[in-house]
Nucleic acid binder design. Structure first.
Lengths: 201, 201
DNA sequence: CGCGGTATTTGACTTTAGTATGTGAAATAT
DNA sequence: ATATTTCACATACTAAAGTCAAATACCGCG
């Protein structure tokens, strides 16, 4: 049904140009130092066009952030099966933190985390969407850990998954608000290990 | 040396009026639905005056937020001494969450947490100030737990304190981004218990 | 082809936080 | 007692995100 007309193609191109230019400028100057006017001027389109394709300036980064779902899928495919669930979780977070730090960057993460907070009224942010790949991945590891009696009883799979991802969000939040000399990879390891110790029987 | 002149007295009154009016309006209409213009108009002062007394609109809530330090001190005074360190921490967080929920409110906390994120460049927010009473309180409990061999070795007092407060921030963050039906008191208990279990020997 | 309708785009406009600059009375120095 | 400075406050302004009614370009269809 959704047949690609010349018009839709052009619209897609406009969106793509806005996205790429936005990302490039954010990367070069930092999110706060780039205006929407600057982005649209660079792309030779109007401001209105920007807001047809994106709900807010934040959306540029939100869109890029979704790339992380591919990362999750890839990770899940590649993980060895002969290690314990808790180790899988540790390795998973380690790889994810490296991805955040080196591929997405702190500025993007800060923006996404801020936006999720500002939308708390009415709208829901992707970050708190329970259908994200993130939850699939963690859930599968947790389920495995419970089945293999590695984790203790008392909490459901969902509860444990939420706790673990919350531990991740807490660490990321601290990475953002505490200045430099915060090693996100190391800190995540420390925190996750402790939480996992608490979950083991 | 700083002698209270008539002028300073009047200035203090202006600041107080702005603060109280701001809090009242935020409470009634929500932070996002109140403008600085509205606050200053209600107080019959100018916008310039507002920005003499506060650095930003957020500062109204930031100021109020600091009340929590009194809460911390009071708590520390009142706590019984014949319970274990881990129980003290649990009780402490429970009381604190009730305080946040019922006295300060989610909108204030959201604002404070957002502001802390936005200042990540150059300035430092009170939330990430290591001299806050919060850290004194937690540190004392942790120190006690380590001394009494309740907690295992391997991490320093500071590291453990940071982990525990991070667990708190993670839970508060989730309280903000996940919509309703999030019981901050219960969730904090669950998460803290797990982390404490991980810290025990 | 041409026409009605729809998707895309435009850019002026609104809103609101924050700033630059001025002003006058109170405090302080001479 | 008068000159000078300082500081609380006022005003007009800028900056920048986001909105909206109108214009334009393009589609499918008769």
């Amino acid at each position: 049904m959704t047949h690609i007309t010349a018009r839709k193609l052009k619209a897609l191109e406009t969106k793509k140009a806005l996205l790429e230019t936005g990302l490039e400028l954010f990367d070069k100057k930092g999110f706060d130092n780039v205006t929407v006017d600057e982005i649209v001027k660079t792309c030779n389109v109007s401001k209105g066009a920007f807001y047809v394709h994106f709900n807010s300036k934040y959306d540029i980064f939100n869109e890029k952030f979704k790339d992380i779902d591919n990362f999750y899928s890839e990770f899940q495919k590649g993980i060895s099966n002969d290690i314990k669930a808790s180790e899988k979780i540790l390795i998973f977070f380690e790889a994810q933190m490296i991805y955040l730090r080196d591929e997405l960057g702190k500025d993007l993460i800060r923006t996404v985390y801020m936006n999720a907070m500002s939308l708390t009224i009415n709208k829901n942010h992707y970050l708190s969407d329970p259908n994200r790949n993130l939850y699939q991945v963690i859930n599968s590891f947790v389920q495995e850990g419970i089945k293999n009696k590695e984790f203790k009883e008392g909490l459901t799979t969902e509860e444990v998954s939420v706790l673990i991802t919350r531990c991740m969000r807490g660490t990321i939040y601290d990475w953002i608000i505490f200045g430099e000399q915060f090693d996100i990879v190391e800190e995540m390891n420390k925190f996750t290990s402790t939480v996992l110790d608490g979950l083991k029987r």
